[in-house]
Design a protein around this nucleic acid. Sequence first.
RNA 1: CGGAACGUGGCGCAGCCCGGUAGCGCACUUGCUUGGGGUGCAAGGGGUCGCGGGUUCAAAUCCCGCCGUUCCGACCA
Length: 564
Amino acid sequence: MRLSKAFIPTQKEMPADATIPSHQLMLRAGLMRQLTAGVYAYLPLGYRAMLKAMQILREEMNAIGGQEFFLPALNPEALWIQTGRRNVPNFILSIKERDLVLAPTHEEVIAWIGGMHIQSYKDLPQIWYQIQTKFRNEPRPRSGVLRGRQFIMKDSYSLDRSFEDLDKSYEDHAEAYRKIFARCGLKFFEVKASSGAMGGSGSQEFMVESESGEDTVALCEKCHYAANMEIASSNVSPIGRLHDGERVEEIHTPNVRTIDQLAAFLKVDQSRLAKSLVYRHDGKPLLILMVGNDRLNESKLVAALGGGELEPIEAGQLEALTGADGGSIGPVGLKGFRIIADKRLEGANNLISGANRNDYHLANIDLQRDVAVDGYFDLRTIEDGEPCPQCGSRIKISHAIELGHIFKLGTKYAEALNVSYLDENGEKKPVVMGSYGIGVERIIACHIEQSRDEHGIIWDKALAPYAVHIVAVSMNNKDIVLISNQLYNKFSDEGVEVLFDDRPNVSPGFKFKDADLLGMPFQIIVGEKGLKNHQVEVKRRKTGDRRLVPVGDVVKDVKKMLHE
RNA sequence: CGGAACGUGGCGCAGCCCGGUAGCGCACUUGCUUGGGGUGCAAGGGGUCGCGGGUUCAAAUCCCGCCGUUCCGACCA
């Protein structure tokens, strides 16, 4: 492509609305433009990079036996009502004029097709995938293309006879994902993840570490332990039992509201304090006991409760329900509440907690003796530096971008939409499903986050819109024009994707800046200096290395480096 | 959905407090110039100041409402 004819609107100035590096560079390099919040138009250069990523996805999905579908973005609303996902908050965008919704993912449609045609164990297994636009009712799009209302996803779905077979499909996908991200030149890691509203038995995420990421992950500095904060655990010690036998006693604690105040007032360690948190779970009062200032992890809580609706109890209702306001609530003698506790408190005694009477606390609480605890669960949010649950080394907490997520769905959708088969014994069984997604825009944005400098993007050859960028230093010099045209034609003939900056009356400096901003892996600089010796300069964008190469060897040399 | 900020030629911004001729840089057009890191000079074109209402002799500027965008939080398959 000749730059003089190309639509690649680069900008020198920083776009005001872009705050993260990938977003800024995608705009400045002319990859895309924002149409409205969370919705982007991809310009030719950006679309080329996305097509590269999609081709890699396609190849690796085909390699594990995937078959590509093209599925409708418009879905009947009834289909989503059937699986109960129509009313998942912030999920579905709908069409005003019809009872249609814009598909945010395609489990439902896949299950509908499966239900129609899967009849026998002989029809299984299947891996069905698509690379298409999905829509989501994001309350707050942000970080450029990382969280949009419209985005392209590679989604695949496995249909199996059994959970054992699902394990294989799942592993095949995990392996394919590792290949995909490695081919894209991404530095990534895998974490155990929560399956959230998707349901299902197991899931892991493929992540890229990044300050700009909205996910928080826990990574062990020594071993391979890695988990999303939603489920990460650490090896903090339980509180355990001290000496036995002391009776519960009430202590006056005027104006003490927080754990910090209580510890200071009583001059005791926070680990002997049991903090009470009150929620409504499916409308019913629930009290949760945590150690001291341990933070409750709501994802873990929802998982421990087996799902359901969770909401904090309004301050106005506290006294009516417990006899006290927040700050003086505790588990002893509390009526009408289900009580659960964090695992660190299992069997603990000599605890101090609220007395359910304002300005009073109770000491010497023994959870075994004084409280009907309805289960101990890991409910706490781990902290940076805590010991790894696997090896005891330090856990580091950092931010990451979720690139891909794989789920063992099980039979949830098969049952809701009646997808079943007859096994060898003529017995009817639900199909066991898995679902596996990768965000295409996120591949591009993550790559740019990881591979850039102050001058611009540094494309990996796998995703680069063009492999080579020829810079004709001046179009007023006949030799430069001649040689750069020859090289352009030769690269094109040899199947190398090449961009040629043949713009007349654009200064060399301007062309160099644009070439660095656009970031193709190799720049071929054709100028008077080199041509004196019948040479051109080959610059490797990644390292900045420049070499003078005889004109006749350039195409061969660069092709060789592209295949390294 | 709570909190905050912003909205002025294509882009980045000033002007707004203190009402009175709409401005700067980049980009664009034309000519000359320059030609290895965003050349220089000159002459141009382009804006109902987000939208609607109000106050006023007069509103980009003050007041009210709405819309949009961004950030923090909540939420997040």
